[in-house]
Design a protein around this nucleic acid. Structure first.
Lengths: 326, 326
DNA sequence: TTGAAAGCGTTACCAT
DNA sequence: ATGGTAACGCTTTCAA
């Protein structure tokens, strides 16, 4: 591989000068600059990013830690992060943590050893101390870790309330909820929103809530049990789209038609929700925008040009998309 | 950040010695080793990977270039690559090329500047020359670039033949095909497989093939046109699952029931195919295995312990999964 | 068995 | 305006 030395020799100047035109810093004579640029082009020279990183203690890279890229919510997020990062001059290292504390901590170490400039993370196990120890900008996405940390989330509770109210407006009189994993913040928030609406109904009690795990299999099981426990349920709010799809399947298994016998609404707005039959009514999160905003926030933190106010705790709005399942 | 010097000082030895125990290379006295290891632990020292990379001209990282992580086929592949890479001691940099030649070439440059040890790529625009210029191991996945290059693909033609024959066995007498993008090799292969089976039927001509683009929208359009052109079609083989789902939607739009009036089969076996109603019959690729095999192949190439025979051109088998759409 | 020192490709400081 | 050179943190040769 051709190095800055080769360029210097070829142009008949010192490496310092080449470095200056590369970064255009310091004084460089007009004609010298031209000579150097010519040499760079002729040799097709590309600076060695590793050497740069070593000196700068920064690798122009950001780390993205997600639980599992196979969960349909994250590819779109990852894509947004990458697009935005590239545009701002950074590369992305993708890490799947499986929500496992060990793996997360390990990735944190790895990323630090790689001199990443900053990290975007979606985690429920990490705490503020671990983050601060890193001593580099971190943006939490989709799940809040601590109020003090830069964060991008959506109106989970509000969205859940919208969903539940919408089912009511469609004439549902017994509404069940398929909840996400117990330990995950946004699952709790969505559950709260649901309770906020139906909690005071005379028919309501906690057995109208079934525990799922943000995946289809658990949701089918949970829905089956829920509908057997309460055959009078005519509406279900599932805490994410995958679980809503599971709920639809379970309903069919029990011979219920959707939406005629039972209306079902999800949460997330993943592209999958448009692919099913019936198409899923859902509370749509602006997933791409979340990734984009998180990346921009992170980069401005990294480049210290943040506006200093608490503009780095963003709660994005959600939208109800009515389709065929309600 | 604490460096090898600190460890050396703390242990009362030279940095050379610390380096030796780190890599356990060269001679190190038993007690010295213990002293050093103690120091490492006490200071919680982690070697600086960037400095290592600079010296070694290798970053213990592999690049993964895919067209678009939002295409449901790739998250599973990416996950497999990452899992396997981590296990073998490598990190992964994910790159979305959008199948765009410029972006691909740019990523190739970036990865090279980052001293990645090797690259896994799914591309239709790259050619053998570009790959060879890189002067590092590259494995092509899902799409063959050149017979001489390490490659992991599946039996596309055979799978297509299986699919088409299966429709026949279900009693279909007029079978249409929704084809993938014209320029993509595997789309052509799948189309060939289809023709192989129905090409000699008396009713057959090329108007039974409609062009899609491996996405849902184009497939809906293509299917609508196809079914209007040939109302007698009672079976459709779509070149991937997303397009098969689009085909189902289009069929519904025209008032056809699936599978009663028209049977539909896809290709890929993405998890989405289990989530639809009706669940999709499909030709399943061993996606995770492909990622795993590609990574292992790449690593053994990188570490030069390849078995030298042409064990680095693998054509994996596919499986027919019968579900509800046929 | 251990240490000193050169070198990996850059950048930035200090001279000139 | 330009060049020499130390430094970034590590590995590896060479000597001792």
């Amino acid at each position: 591989m051709i190095s800055i030395k080769d360029v210097a020799k070829h142009a008949g100047v010192s490496v310092a000068t080449v470095s200056r035109v590369l970064n255009n810093s310091g004084y460089v004579g007009q004609d010298t600059r031209i000579k150097v640029e010519k040499a760079i082009k002729e040799l097709n020279y590309k600076p060695n990013e590793v050497a740069r990183s070593l000196f700068k203690k920064q690798s122009n890279t950001i780390g993205l830690i997600v639980p599992d890229i196979m969960n349909p919510f994250f590819p779109e997020l990852a894509r947004a992060v990458e697009d935005t990062a590239i545009q701002l001059g950074y590369n992305v290292i993708l890490c799947n943590s499986d929500g496992d504390e060990k793996k997360e901590q390990n990735y944190l170490d790895v990323l630090q050893q790689q001199y990443v400039n900053g990290i975007i993370v979606s985690s429920n196990t990490l705490n503020a101390t671990q983050i601060e120890r890193l001593n580099m900008p971190v943006v939490s996405i989709d799940r809040v870790i601590s109020k003090g940390l830069p964060t991008i989330v959506v109106e989970n509770k509000k969205g859940a309330m919208m969903a539940t109210r919408f089912l009511q407006s469609k004439g549902c009189t017994r509404i069940g909820h398929i909840k996400g994993n117990n330990s995950i913040v946004n699952a709790e928030e969505r559950c709260e929103g649901y309770k906020e609406i139906v909690g005071k109904e005379s028919w309501y009690n906690d057995t109208y809530i079934a525990n799922g795990k943000y995946d289809m299999q658990s949701s089918i099981q949970a829905t089956l049990e829920l509908l057997q426990r309460h055959p009078d349920i005519d509406g279900i709010f599932a805490a994410n789209d995958i679980m809503a799809i599971g709920a639809i399947k379970a309903a069919y298994q029990l011979g219920r038609r959707v939406p005629e016998d039972i209306a079902i609404i999800g949460f997330d707005g993943i592209s999958l929700s448009k692919a099913t039959t019936p198409e899923l009514t859902t509370i749509e999160q602006p997933i791409y925008e979340m990734g984009e905003k998180a990346t921009k926030m992170l980069v401005s933190l990294m480049e210290q040009k943040q506006s200093m106010d608490q503009e780095n705790y963003k709660i994005l709005d959600v939208t109800l998309i009515e389709r065929e399942s309600t």
